[in-house]
Simulated assay, not measured.
Amino acid sequence: MNECCAIVDLRQYTLRPGRRDTLIELFDTYFVDGQEATGMHIAGQFRDLDVPDRFVWIRGFRDLPARADALNAFYYGPVWRAHSAAANATMIDSDNALLLKPVRLGPAYPALDAPRPGGTASVVAGAVYHRGAADDGFVEYFEDHVVPVLTATGAEPVAVFETLVAENNFPPLPLRDEVVLAWFARFPGIPAYDEHRRQLAASSVWQEQVLPELVCRSVRPMQELRLSPTAGSQFR
């Protein structure tokens, strides 16, 4: 396992109308370097293509103690102190956060030293499934039955995460109390993503077997994500 990502936060912020680009400018200019200086890995940050006021991002940690140390260092440190008021002014809700661990990380998932090239029109897409319990067999079903169909239709997962059942060791930032599985794939652009969706809709295995089983195994409807990486995102 890449030591940067044994623990992952998946965070989704609801922002004030029209303020997303303001937060992204702050984030890419100050918060990426500021957090990574404390030992975090900021793997990806995104505009949600379907929710204009949602900002989504992923950060990784070596382990749980490293998470506590890094979060304390950043949120009580000089970078957050200097820019927190401007960042908080863009937000309505920042508590939609999940504590996860990797099930699989493919070679396209960014390493610590991956570039932040900017300027591409790629799409990162996936879903969050809401599960009943950590021992429900969901991960095994996903790996054995869902991944083959996703891969065959052009969406081989780059990253698959599931909930890490552990106490939140930085209480100032709340976490959602639920069990999930989340996956992400990358596409060179919206046409490639749309073609994946067309093939998935035409797949009898997906429509008649896999999708109904996913619905039965979920405690509420899945969240689908279609994301555009910011200029400072490694995951693209």
Rank of each mutant, 00 (worst) to 15 (best):
C4K: 02
C4M: 07
C5N: 15
A6G: 13
I7M: 08
I7N: 12
V8Q: 03
Q12K: 07
Y13S: 00
T14Y: 03
R20L: 14
T22N: 00
I24Y: 05
E25D: 14
E25W: 00
F27R: 02
F27C: 04
F31V: 00
V32S: 07
V32A: 01
V32F: 00
G34D: 06
E36D: 06
A37L: 09
G44R: 09
Q45N: 15
F46M: 01
F46I: 02
R47W: 13
R47A: 10
R47V: 11
D48A: 14
L49Y: 02
D53Y: 05
R54F: 01
R54M: 13
R54D: 07
V56H: 04
W57Q: 07
W57N: 01
I58C: 09
D63K: 01
P65A: 05
P65M: 07
R67L: 14
D69R: 14
A73F: 01
Y76H: 12
G77I: 03
P78H: 01
W80N: 01
R81H: 08
H83T: 15
A86S: 14
A87N: 07
A87R: 05
M91K: 02
D93A: 02
D93H: 01
L99C: 14
L99K: 12
L99Y: 13
L100N: 09
V103A: 09
G106Q: 10
G106D: 15
G106W: 12
P107Y: 06
P107V: 03
Y109D: 11
P115H: 03
R116T: 10
R116G: 01
G119M: 02
G119P: 03
S122F: 00
V123A: 08
V128I: 15
V128P: 03
H130R: 07
G132H: 14
G132D: 10
G132Y: 08
D135H: 13
D135Y: 11
G137R: 04
V139F: 04
F142L: 02
D144G: 06
H145C: 12
V146S: 11
L150G: 03
A152L: 01
P157R: 06
P157G: 01
V158T: 15
A159V: 05
V160D: 00
F161K: 04
N169E: 12
P174N: 10
D177T: 05
E178R: 02
V179Y: 08
V179Q: 11
V179C: 07
L181H: 00
F184G: 04
A185S: 15
A185R: 02
F187H: 14
G189L: 07
Y193V: 00
H196N: 10
H196F: 11
S203D: 14
S204G: 07
S204Y: 00
Q207F: 02
Q209F: 09
Q209P: 00
L211D: 10
P212S: 12
E213Q: 07
S218E: 13
V219M: 11
R220Q: 15
E224L: 15
S228C: 08
P229Q: 00
P229E: 08
P229M: 08
T230S: 15
A231Y: 04
G232I: 09
Q234L: 10
